[in-house]
Nucleic acid binder design. Sequence first.
DNA 1: CTCATGGGCGAGATCGTTCCCATATGCCAA
DNA 2: TTGGCATATGGGAACGATCTCGCCCATGAG
Lengths: 350, 350
Amino acid sequence: MSRKGNDAAAAAGGTVRRATIKDVAEAAGVSRSTASRALTGRGYVATDVRERVLDAARELRYVPDATARYLKQQVSLSLGVLVSDLRNSFYARLAAGAGAAARGQGYSMVLAEDGGSVEAQLEAAETFVAMRVAGVVVTPVSADVSTYLSRHRIPVVEVDRQFAAGDVDAVVVDNHHAAQRVTQRLIDLGHRRIALFIDETTWTTGRERHSGYHAALSEAGVPLDPDLVVSSGWDVEAAHAAAVALLQTDRRPTAVFAANNVLAEGVWRAANDLALSIPADVSLVSFDDAPWMSLVTPGLTAVAQDESALGETAVRRLLERIAAPDSAPLTVMMSTKIVDRDSIQAPAAD
Amino acid sequence: MSRKGNDAAAAAGGTVRRATIKDVAEAAGVSRSTASRALTGRGYVATDVRERVLDAARELRYVPDATARYLKQQVSLSLGVLVSDLRNSFYARLAAGAGAAARGQGYSMVLAEDGGSVEAQLEAAETFVAMRVAGVVVTPVSADVSTYLSRHRIPVVEVDRQFAAGDVDAVVVDNHHAAQRVTQRLIDLGHRRIALFIDETTWTTGRERHSGYHAALSEAGVPLDPDLVVSSGWDVEAAHAAAVALLQTDRRPTAVFAANNVLAEGVWRAANDLALSIPADVSLVSFDDAPWMSLVTPGLTAVAQDESALGETAVRRLLERIAAPDSAPLTVMMSTKIVDRDSIQAPAAD
DNA sequence: CTCATGGGCGAGATCGTTCCCATATGCCAA
DNA sequence: TTGGCATATGGGAACGATCTCGCCCATGAG
């Protein structure tokens, strides 16, 4: 023995080296090549030798170094997932679904948040490139991420919203149609003054939800009142303030369609603060079905997306693309459903 | 030139190799060593040479391979974060805090979920070892994770609950004290029949919350009624079923203390289903303050933990330990506060 | 007996990076 | 002049795995 064993070093208080395949090979009295074959199961190894190697590996608690393996094979087993805000249940569930799908396929998930910032998103993308992840699932905030990652030959799937339609895969829902249907529902109940709360119309989500709302009104011959389309900010507070303002006007809407769960929360809080009764004084529907919407009274009628399925599908699509890098980009459309609860009813007679 | 450039290869439809430091060095007309020095900023490089190298790197869109760097330096820049369930806002916020802190210190976060399963948790730990993460933050479900990771020389911080007290660092809250205070609050209002909903008393969280409840009752001389301590299962449905059963008995409790947000949701739903008014018919307090608790009417009085701070602190502690591997393990106690809302009041006179 | 075949094993190259070391030059003090 | 020091650069060896070779040995067919 030319070198002290690990146990001796440990007893001496020295730093314990992690066991490498070389240690395993020496302990089993074989070469590194043979040890590798025994451990990976590729190539010929005599059964007794294989046993010796496996025993040695167990004994030494050998865990192969994934980074070294990647370096040699140039095949990574981790996926990047990049979302806006984990505190938002929508993204949390999306990430949970993605993580589960990844794990199920033997991948691990590197998760990053960008808080909706383009720069933060690019920074995260750069980290993913540096880590040589096998692919990335992203809820994009600009076209730049997909472009950047594609340039670096990293497969991307856009999920929830789409900025690079046609260039990369995407998994989305039919925002236009769902928004139209739910607006239609309000119109059918007799509503004519229907407000839309929306944060952003430059993303596909916002744009399509807006157009769906618009389409439903047009089709019913209800004139579009620009004052009823409220572009509040991103967060609950902004939506809350905007809702308080709108709901206090003398000709307030009889119904509100909130284009996402954050906006719905703002409107809900505003109605509560103003002691307006939902749905008696004002009906409320939401795009996105957040957990709280089934807990409050009345429960909120909402367009529900299966966020987990969104994440899972995105990961599955990503792995398909990794397997077939040159196939044409696909946009997968997931279904939504309207969950009927008790936050909408016919408007009070004037 | 002995080899085709990338552009030519791209034009020919061939696979484009990612630029390596060797490519950068050649493009700048220097050796790999010099290129490395210019890029990392360690060691002497003439200013004009540095410029040339940096230009070449930009030109070739060079992004250093983090795995290769790790292999050489044996210093990893990713952290493992292992939680039970991202769909639970508690864990989501914890993970968000951890991720933010990690990113702030230049680390990226590898996130895994174990769904509360010991085996899944160990599997995730094994992945972390294989990936050679610099450290792990975990909400443990057994002592095995910490033991396993420690054996592999990977620093661990237990967060929320503690299984390896004294052996590894931990970030927790004073469950006993907080539970005692909130139970005391109910007693002070005049409640004597106070139910405790709890899922598990083998974890520190459950055990301590139980003991705090117990302590408050003892101190007030209220006899402990074992029928009022409900060990329901993990999920909302189980808690809901148990709560429906309990709240229908003729001598139902005048107040319920739910030991976490999931149980609180079960109890809340049960009360609603039974048309019991909170707090008139039954008072309800929760350990954990979930987002929905401020949206429902009445708002739920709850013991609030700052989940983000929990995650951030755990990561900070982890990095401290990485910096000083031989310092004594520390248990950091975070504060809680009771947020008063409207779900508790004095019991109705018998 | 020869030669092809296939099982079994090890030497050494390789992935992309860093880092130690050797070498070289210019400058200043002894 | 010599020695020492700071600056500047390149050669080559790692890090830990995998993988391509090439070699050896049985076995069995011709």
